[in-house]
Write a protein that binds this DNA or RNA. Structure first.
Lengths: 192, 192
DNA sequence: TTACAATACGACCGATCGTGCTATTATTCG
DNA sequence: CGAATAATAGCACGATCGGTCGTATTGTAA
């Protein structure tokens, strides 16, 4: 029995692509079913509720993020190269055409940061993990004297994430061509 | 005839408060009408369409932003004090309890940055104006040698906006107490 | 190939969506 | 005060929402 999980995966993939553009709540089961090529009830049978689907989408996004952003960076040598790789992979992730709407987490956070529930909790947890991981990579680079010790690692992580968020707005709303250069310049100023 | 405009204003106010939490699309006319104390059709009569209501909400948000963030800062002496006031007023704006969901623009941008139309256009225009204004305030401070000339004013504005965005996520999703200190530290590092 | 379970479908539910049309109140002005 | 006008309510519309259920189809293991 393996037909089920495979179509379920296809549903989640399509739902994630839609979610980035429309938000998690903006994805409707009817529209999604049509996009996948299933009937609404046939699709719904894979999940007990819409929230279960949203959680699956969120899980998928976390998985992709680990695969595309975090893991490649962990293959780089510890220290500044790893921090740089984390940052640049994150920029690629935001700009990636495979995610036509930008970083799904940025979208989802804005949607759910004031809506208590399981989704918000998972969002907060993954966001904290990402910040902690980034900060620890920064801490290593500081011990190696590759990043100036003018501030604590959490502060540097805070500012790097800010630069990436500004990058997302510049790219997706304003369509500025030079915003990647801006983000990289910010990286150098923050870590230099 | 002044009953009309006054209830219209009440509608827009309520709609803005809801929009910050639910997004512009998330506000429904029925729910909004109930909140204002009108019938759905009575409320609808004030706007030809839902998009017209959304545009009015956006306009209201811009007005409040000018009143609460920009104008007070313009009363400060040109140079670093004005830049600092712009930044701190923006943090207050994000954290303000009167806007229980944070900065409406951050929410709206995530919702509409990949949805072409009038709303996206206005959003982009106001965002560009804000960045240009901030950059010009920074340029003055640079001429006065109150901000180091290590980067161009647009770059500094980019990084300040990033710090504010990181502040919003830290505050509203993660609920971190020290995030204002973090944002101010970022300000000092960026302008110092 | 048969039999059973997994999967998908179609019809349908009550609720709500945005949006008109019409009648009835309120309000403002002469 | 009365007439003109603006504001609001009532009602209904087609569409769509998330969700349920019984049934048909399909895939899989024996």
């Amino acid at each position: 029995m393996k037909k089920g999980p495979s179509t379920r995966q296809m549903i989640v993939d399509t739902a994630l692509n839609q979610s980035v553009r429309l938000g998690l709540e903006g994805v409707s089961l009817g529209n999604l079913a049509e996009d996948v090529g299933l009937s609404k009830s046939g699709l719904f049978a894979h999940f007990k509720s819409k929230e279960a689907l949203q959680l699956a989408v969120l899980e998928e996004a976390v998985g992709r993020y680990m695969r595309l952003v975090v893991e490649p960076a962990l293959k780089k040598p510890a220290g500044l190269p790893r921090v740089r790789a984390l940052f640049e992979n994150y920029l690629d992730w935001i700009a990636g055409e495979h995610e036509a709407g930008g970083c799904p987490f940025v979208t989802f956070v804005q949607e759910f940061d004031d809506r208590p529930g399981a989704i918000r909790d998972i969002l907060a947890k993954s966001q904290r993990q990402w910040r902690v991981g980034l900060a620890s990579a920064i801490a290593i680079a500081m011990e190696k004297r590759e990043i100036a010790r003018r501030a604590d690692p959490e502060q540097v992580a805070f500012e790097l994430i800010g630069a990436a968020l500004a990058f997302q707005t510049s790219l997706r709303l304003l369509g500025e061509r030079g915003c990647r250069v801006r983000a990289l310049a910010a990286f150098d100023r923050i870590t230099g």
